[in-house]
């Protein structure tokens, strides 16, 4: 401790000397105050409260219908899908609504190899197990919808392909037309040249005839 610290300490000692209790039996007073309520008794209260809460929870589970206990909202469920055509490489981003008891509950979000991720978007009182069961029950229909969806995609691709054929044909026709135009142009040019040559010939003959007459 340096000199400055010692000075502070001494000044503090003068200002705040260690006090002594004036009330000599203060400890007994405290003991008397705490003896009426042992510290461990506080725990008993907590245990009683916990037991009451546990009973209430048990009663709730027993008396209330199961469907009302848990609300499912926006959770991820994975359903198996074996109907994926091999030749389609890209995952489908478009969504298909799933219906359980005529209520839309699920939307397919994205598909990967042999698995379809289903995102439950609508709030429902069904438990996760119940949803999984309902999805499995509707699996065939579900797979049919996916297969139909792929068929649509394929027909789209075919349509695009057909469009490409038409484009090719049109292009080919244009080429043929252009060729024909070129041919005609060439013929017109040749005819024009012939006409010009005949005009020159005619002019020459007329000039020769005029000279003879003179």
């Amino acid at each position: 401790m340096n000199k400055e610290d010692k000075e502070i300490r001494k000044a503090l000692n003068i200002k705040y000397p260690t006090p002594q209790f004036q009330q000599k039996d203060w400890q007994s007073v405290v003991i008397k105050r705490i003896s009426n309520k042992p510290a461990s008794r506080r725990h008993i209260g907590w245990w009683i409260a916990a037991a009451v809460m546990a009973c209430l929870i048990l009663l709730t589970f027993t008396l209330c219908p199961k469907t009302d206990i848990k609300t499912v909202s926006s959770r991820q469920i994975i359903a198996t899908n074996n109907s994926r055509p091999e030749k389609t490489k890209q995952p489908i981003i478009r969504s298909i609504k799933q219906k359980i008891d005529d209520k839309p509950i699920a939307v397919i979000q994205q598909k990967h190899h042999h698995q379809t991720h289903v995102k439950v978007l609508t709030n429902t009182t069904m438990t996760e197990d119940e949803i999984a069961f309902a999805i499995n029950k509707n699996k065939e229909d579900f797979n049919r919808q996916i297969a139909s969806f792929y068929t649509d995609i394929e027909s789209d691709i075919e349509k695009y392909n057909r469009d490409d054929d038409i484009k090719g044909q049109i292009s080919s026709i244009y080429s043929e037309i252009n060729l024909e135009i070129d041919k005609l142009n060439r013929e017109v040019t040749a005819q024009n040249a012939e006409v010009a040559r005949m005009m020159v010939q005619l002019q020459y003959e007329q000039n020769a005839k005029a000279t003879n007459n003179q």
């Binding site: 006090p19 209790f21 004036q22 009330q23 203060w26 007073v29 405290v30 105050r33 705490i34 309520k37 510290a39 461990s40 506080r42 725990h43």
Partner: peptide, 17 residues
């Protein structure tokens, strides 16, 4: 301060657990 000291020890006892 003496009364508060007693209160502190009672409080500490109650919160001992």
């Amino acid at each position: 301060a003496e009364e508060l000291t007693q209160d502190v020890f009672v409080k500490v006892f109650n919160a001992l657990s």
